[in-house]
Simulated assay, not measured.
Amino acid sequence: MPGVGIGGRIVAESRFQSLNSEYFGSVPDVEMTSTKPRRAWLAALLSLLGGPLGQVYTGHFGRGVLLWLIGTFLLPILWFLTVFLPLGRVGLMLLLLCALAFPIYLAVDAFLLARRNSGGPLKRYQRWWVYVLLFLVCVVANRAVTYAVRSFVAEPVVQPVRAMSPAIQAGDCVLIEKCYSSAERLRHHDIVAFRSDGLDSPLYVMRVAGLPGETIEIRNERVLINGVQWHDKCAVFEGPLSPHVDLANYGPLKIPSDCFFVLGDNRRVSKDSRLLGPIPFVDFYGKVRMIYWSQARVFPDPGDTSHYLPGPIRWDRMGTRLD
């Protein structure tokens, strides 16, 4: 009967497709004409270059993407904890170890996957243009995460001059917190970063000496706040006073309600509010939390801080908290 013949053919085709899927995998994921072996060294190299590329190259797309997502969001979390928790050198070393260990883990994982699966049919996503596309996606995503961390969590900045010495020395790289910092929450002795002339001006790093509404005055290098001497144990007075401007005396001045007053610890060489005036809240950039790297700078001409020679790395200063 015609109906039986058609039904038998349908059943036969169904059984053939079932056997085909059982032995060769589903049709959309497998291309049976390609049986190139996976090179272990190339899988490891691809992981070092582009996150999940090594795992995708070995045919483990989901595993590669999952590991890459874990690594992408793990480092910002560790960065956040290092900035806000009092971990010091321990937290900094943990962050560095994770930053180095995770790419190595991805490379080793891809290498072992390739060794265990050295041959077999290629899946449809194992194509050169897929690798290029994934590489571009990884680059864009990593840049986006880096931008978000620098904009909303913390930003690294190099202190180029000696205005805050000895607390922050020339060549110290500091982390500026930008997550919870606000000018309205400043306190005396806080070390802050700010701009003096809008977005195009360089960043200054100074210590808060006066808050809104306070009257500040400097007499013979002694700081008076509302008529009471302010004892700043971090201040140093090295070298001669400038003959061009009187830095030993200032004010009295009542600080406006939307400004704060800053001084450098190295009082005789610091360009601070004695020259810049009170700093508006809108120029506040963030609060300095810690030193994460330090390399000395040698100035052949002490009066010219724009030219210097790199000095030794100061390992003992790394991880120093400033809050």
Rank of each mutant, 00 (worst) to 15 (best):
Leu203Glu: 09
Leu203Gly: 01
Tyr204Pro: 00
Val205Arg: 06
Arg207Pro: 01
Val208Ala: 13
Ala209Ser: 11
Gly210Gln: 06
Leu211Tyr: 06
Leu211Asn: 07
Leu211Pro: 04
Gly213Phe: 12
Gly213Gln: 12
Gly213Met: 11
Glu214Thr: 12
Glu214Tyr: 10
Glu214Ser: 07
Glu214Trp: 10
Glu214Pro: 03
Thr215Val: 08
Thr215Lys: 02
Ile218Pro: 01
Ile218Leu: 15
Arg219Cys: 03
Asn220Phe: 01
Arg222Glu: 14
Arg222Ser: 12
Val223Ser: 08
Leu224Asp: 05
Ile225Ser: 04
Ile225Asn: 04
Asn226Lys: 06
Gly227Tyr: 06
Val228Thr: 14
Val228Glu: 15
Gln229Thr: 13
Gln229Tyr: 08
Lys233Ile: 11
Cys234Phe: 14
Val236Trp: 03
Val236Glu: 09
Val236His: 04
Glu238Asn: 11
Gly239Arg: 13
Gly239Thr: 10
Gly239Met: 11
Pro240Thr: 08
Ser242Asp: 15
Pro243Asn: 09
His244Asp: 14
Val245Cys: 03
Val245Leu: 10
Asp246Tyr: 10
Asp246Ile: 05
Leu247Tyr: 11
Ala248Trp: 06
Ala248Asp: 05
Asn249Ala: 05
Asn249Cys: 03
Tyr250Met: 15
Pro252Leu: 04
Leu253Ser: 01
Leu253Ile: 12
Lys254Gly: 00
Ile255Cys: 04
Pro256Gly: 13
Ser257Cys: 02
Asp258His: 13
Asp258Leu: 04
Cys259Met: 12
Phe261Pro: 03
Val262Asp: 09
Val262Phe: 11
Gly264Leu: 03
Asp265Gln: 02
Arg268Asp: 04
Ser270Val: 04
Asp272Met: 08
Ser273His: 05
Ser273Arg: 08
Arg274Trp: 05
Arg274Gly: 07
Leu276Thr: 06
Leu276Glu: 09
Gly277Tyr: 05
Gly277Phe: 05
Pro280Arg: 08
Phe281Asp: 13
Phe281Trp: 09
Asp283Glu: 15
Asp283Met: 07
Asp283Ile: 00
Asp283Tyr: 14
Lys287Asn: 11
Lys287Arg: 15
Lys287Gln: 15
Val288Pro: 02
Arg289Tyr: 02
Met290Arg: 08
Met290His: 03
Tyr292Gly: 02
Tyr292Ala: 02
Trp293Phe: 13
Ala296Glu: 14
Ala296Leu: 01
Ala296Lys: 12
Arg297Ala: 01
Arg297Glu: 00
Arg297Met: 03
Pro302Cys: 10
Asp304Lys: 09
Thr305Trp: 14
Ser306Ile: 00
Ser306Asp: 11
His307Gly: 01
Tyr308Glu: 05
Leu309Thr: 10
Leu309Lys: 08
Pro310Leu: 13
Pro310Cys: 07
Gly311Leu: 08
Pro312Ala: 15
Ile313Asp: 13
Arg314Pro: 00
Trp315Val: 03
Arg317Phe: 00
Met318Thr: 08
Met318Asp: 07
Met318Pro: 03
Met318Ser: 08
Thr320Glu: 14
